[in-house]
Design a protein around this nucleic acid. Structure first.
Lengths: 266, 266
DNA sequence: CGTGTTATTGACCAACATCAAACTTAGTGG
DNA sequence: CCACTAAGTTTGATGTTGGTCAATAACACG
C-alpha cells in the first residue's frame, strides 16, 4: 500500500485493486489526486440527471445510489454504491448525466476534478486501464441487473441483490464476514428491484421464515449464505473480481452454472 | 472520411464518429486495423458466456445480440447490435465473457485482434477515448434498459425499443428515414423486453391498431414517430449522440422531460 | 412523549404468464 | 408452379405474480 495515501485515497486504491493489478507507481499517482470532501444527509442529490459535472465523485462513507426518474413518478435505482466506488466516473467522457446520484444514508463523498483524472490517465496508462476496467465492471453489473429485472422472480431478485452486496462489501473490507449489515429501507430495495415496497416486505418475510436472512430495522444479516446464493441464482463471475480478492468465506456457495462453451471462438 | 479505409473500417469510423470527434489521424489509424471477416447464419454464437476472446467483434452485416441465459431456460437479451457496433469491446479489459453474443439474422462480422486495439489506444489516445466512450454509452443503454425492465409497462418497453432502434439505425445511415425495417421475431423482442412472445404479439397488435407501427412478417415500420416516442416515454439523451449526428427528421417528437436540475454541483 | 418514517397486514385487482391449438408465411424441392 | 415443411404469428381460456389502496403497528429520534 502507498505509505502516504490518505484514508480516502486508500479506499479508491483498494477498490481498483480488487479488480485490477496496480503497480506501485499507479498507487503513488492515485495518492496524489486532489480530493474535495463534502458530507451529505440522507436523501440528498450528489449529482442530478442533466448535470454536466466537472468532478468525479468517490464515495467514502455511507451508501449512494444511481437512479432514474421516469414519467408518473416512477423511479428505478440502477446501482448501489459503497465506500470506494466512483459512481459517476463515466462523466469523464459523457458530458451530460443520464441519471442522478443520491445518498441512501448520511455519508461523505470526495470529488476529484476531471482534469486531475485525465492527467492520471495520461501519465499512468495502467491506472487509466484500471479506471476503464472499473467502468466496464459497472456495465457488467448493469447487465446482470437487466437479466434480473427482466427474467427473475421477486424472490430471486432480492436474494441476488443481497448476495451481490455481501460480496462487494466483503471484498472492500467493509464488513467482517458473510453476515453484513446494510441500512437500506425496503422502499430502497423496491426501487432497486423493480418491485413495490409492499411486495419487498412480503419477500423479506419469506426469506426470514426460511432462515436465509435476519432483519432488525433497516439492518440485514445473512444467515445462510449458500442457501441465499441458490435462492438468488447467484454467481459472482459477473463482478470480474481478481481471484485473490475473493474472500474465502464467500468462495463457495455460489452455484456452479453449466458453462455453455469453452475456449475462444475466433 | 478516410480515403483508403475499407467499407468495414468505414462502418467503425462512422460509428465512433456519431458519439465522438475523430481526428484525421484517428481515422487513419483505425483504417489500419487488421480485420478478420467471417459470415454467420442466423442463431449462431459469435462468442459464448465463459469464453476469453482474443479478438473484438465488429458487426458489419446483420443483427447481433448480447444475451444471458439464466436457470430454467430463461433468457434475457441485453442489447441489440447493428452494423458498426462492437458488442464485445469490453473483452479488451474483462477476460471472461459474462454474457454471450449471438446473431439474430444471418450476417457478417469482422474480428480485430486485441493487440491491434491496444496499439491503437496507445498510439492514438483520442481514438482510445472514443472507444472508452463507446463502452460508456453501452453502459448508458443498459441503464435505460434497467429502468424499462424495472418500471415500464410492456407497451412502453416495446415502443421505447422501437424508438431506440430507429434512432440508432438512422444515425448510422443504415436506413433512409424514420420508417425502418428490422427483421426480428416477436420472440426476440420478448427476450429483449422481459416478456413472453405471446404478450409481445398482443402489444404489437395494440400499436398497429392505434396506427403507430405497421408490421409485415418480421419487418416493422414506424408510422407515427411522435406518437411512438410518447408511448415509449422515449428521450434520446441517454444515447449521448453528438448533436450534429442526430438526423433532423428524428429530432423532435421526443418528449421534453422536466429537467430536475441544471448546472454542476461541486 | 410526540411525531415522522418505516414496516406490516388485508382485501382486492391488473398485467402479464402459461398452455395449447390453429393459422400464416416464407422457403424448398419436385 | 405447387405441395410440403418449418418457423413464426395469432387466438382463447385460464392461472399467477406482484400491484394498488388503505389502514395499523412498530420504531427512532428529538
Amino acid at each position: 500500500m502507498s505509505q502516504d495515501a490518505s484514508p480516502d485515497h486508500q479506499r479508491l486504491i483498494r477498490k481498483l485493486d480488487v479488480a485490477s493489478n496496480l503497480t506501485r507507481e499507479d498507487r503513488t499517482a492515485i495518492a496524489r489526486l486532489p480530493l474535495i470532501s463534502r458530507t451529505f444527509d440522507k436523501g440528498e442529490d450528489l449529482v442530478r440527471q442533466g448535470d454536466s459535472p466537472k468532478h468525479a465523485c468517490l464515495v467514502v462513507e455511507g451508501v449512494v445510489c444511481r437512479h432514474k426518474y421516469l414519467s408518473r413518478g416512477r423511479r428505478q435505482i440502477l446501482s448501489i454504491h459503497v465506500p470506494g466506488d466512483m459512481p459517476d466516473l463515466q462523466s469523464l467522457f459523457l458530458d451530460v448525466m443520464d441519471h442522478g446520484l443520491a445518498t441512501l444514508t448520511p455519508g461523505r463523498a470526495v470529488f476529484v476534478p476531471h482534469g486531475a483524472l485525465r492527467d492520471l490517465i495520461r501519465h499512468s496508462p495502467n491506472a487509466g486501464g484500471a479506471l476503464w476496467r472499473d467502468t466496464l465492471i459497472d456495465a457488467s453489473i448493469f447487465r446482470e441487473g437487466m437479466a434480473g429485472l427482466g427474467r427473475r422472480t421477486a424472490r430471486e431478485r432480492l436474494a441476488h441483490l443481497l448476495c451481490e452486496l455481501a460480496v462487494r462489501l466483503r471484498t472492500l473490507d467493509l464488513v467482517g464476514g458473510p453476515r453484513f449489515q446494510l441500512p437500506l429501507t425496503q422502499s430502497d430495495f423496491a426501487d432497486a428491484l423493480g418491485l413495490t415496497n409492499v411486495h419487498v416486505n412480503r419477500v423479506f418475510q419469506d426469506l426470514r421464515r426460511e432462515g436465509l436472512v435476519r432483519t432488525q430495522g433497516k439492518l440485514v444479516q445473512i444467515e445462510d449464505w449458500a442457501a441465499l446464493c441458490v435462492a438468488g441464482d447467484f454467481d459472482a463471475d459477473y463482478l470480474h473480481l481478481r481471484a485473490e480478492a475473493i474472500p474465502p468465506d464467500l468462495q463457495d456457495g455460489a452455484p456452479v452454472r453449466p458453462t455453455q462453451g469453452q475456449g475462444t471462438r475466433l
